[in-house]
């Protein structure tokens, strides 16, 4: 086996970043719904992602919930947050962006409260981080994956450690969850309600003329989006065994970068491709970041430069149409 391939298989880093990317896939689907379908710049994500993480963590640790049933609970909490943003914007006529920032700000306090429930004795730090060693949804695939990969590897004289096998188990579980979400979203967005939602982001005048209440559509859309984002928060926190209130910081940019990468790799001619592209973009973004950190170590970048790198990726992607126009060969007139 070529050495880079075996490195790829046996390193913890690559399967690790793919697993995290897939855990973030629901975030990217959520961002796709608000930014691309509804054209509503929603920053609720800053609070709804850690909300999902906190709700799942606390229900699990403090209240002993079954680890699967914490996921719908987290999703519901995020949906309520998203609906709140949409209602604030519509009923009080607050600018949508501002409404979402306000909700995210309020969620910060709420998340601290929730996280405060999580542990009996806690260190009173500002972020109230909680670490937990509890059942994780990816556990379900760990056993089979370990026996499969470790055994095969021993036979092939390569060595995949149980820790690496666990990352493949996570990839498998997150992949199944992501596939289910994509299928569900694709179904929903082609129902009568889903079509009305899509039209709302396209032409509000037409939507009203066809008897659709655009406010209701935005409430549904933002609830759906932030529900997905909170679900992702729950998956992420549980997989990492960690939650605090800063998990959502800057995440909107990660989401946007992933959406854009997805669009470049899989130009969205139809909805199916757009959704698959968003999910793929989530993974590719992680892979790109890992790649950047690996290679740029040589040129003096470090882990803390991650956000700078992300910002540059998004700026370049956003500027791409202008750049392309600028460099395009001028047509003779």
């Amino acid at each position: 086996m070529p050495s880079f391939l075996s490195d790829l298989l046996t390193s913890t880093q690559w399967p690790g970043s793919i697993a995290i990317g897939l855990a973030y896939a629901a975030v990217v689907l959520g961002v796709f719904i608000t930014f691309r379908i509804l054209a509503f710049p929603d920053l609720t994500i800053d609070g709804s992602f850690p909300l999902g993480a906190a709700v799942a963590a606390v229900l699990l640790m403090r209240f002993g919930w079954n680890h699967w049933s914490t996921l719908p609970a987290a999703t519901f909490a995020g949906a309520v947050a998203g609906a709140t943003t949409a209602l604030l914007a519509a009923r009080l006529r607050i600018n949508g962006l501002l409404a979402s920032i306000l909700v995210a700000l309020a969620l910060n306090s709420i998340n601290l409260r929730i996280l405060g429930q999580g542990v009996a004795e806690r260190v009173p730090t500002a972020n109230l981080p909680i670490a937990f060693n509890a059942p994780d949804v990816t556990d379900i695939a760990k056993g089979p994956m370990r026996s499969l990969l470790v055994d095969v590897c021993l036979a092939a004289d390569e060595c995949i450690t149980p820790a690496v096998a666990d990352r493949y188990a996570a990839i498998l579980v997150f992949l199944v969850i992501t596939a289910l979400l994509v299928i569900l979203l694709h179904w929903f967005l082609n129902t009568e309600l889903g079509l009305a939602l899509r039209a709302t982001g396209d032409n509000e005048q037409m939507v009203r003329a066809q008897g659709i209440n655009p406010t209701a559509m935005r409430v549904i859309g933002l609830a759906l989006s932030n529900g997905l984002i909170a679900l992702s928060g729950a998956l992420y926190a549980r997989y990492q065994g960690f939650a605090d209130v800063t998990l959502g910081r800057g995440l909107i940019i990660v989401g946007l970068a992933s959406v854009i990468i997805g669009e470049v790799v899989l130009p969205p001619s139809v909805l199916r491709r757009a959704l698959l592209g968003a999910a793929l973009g989530a993974v590719l973004y992680r892979v790109l970041i890992t790649l950047a950190l690996n290679t740029t170590g040589n040129i003096g970048l470090q882990e803390s430069d991650l956000q700078l790198i992300t910002a540059v990726i998004v700026i370049v992607a956003l500027a791409a149409p202008q750049l392309r126009r600028y460099f395009a060969p001028r047509r003779a007139t």
Binding site: F188, T191, E192, L195, A196, V207, Q210, I212
Partner: peptide, 13 residues
């Protein structure tokens, strides 16, 4: 969209 003008829209295809 136009076919359901003025009616409730649900989860039908």
């Amino acid at each position: 969209l136009a076919l359901r003008r003025g009616e409730r829209r649900g989860l039908q295809r």
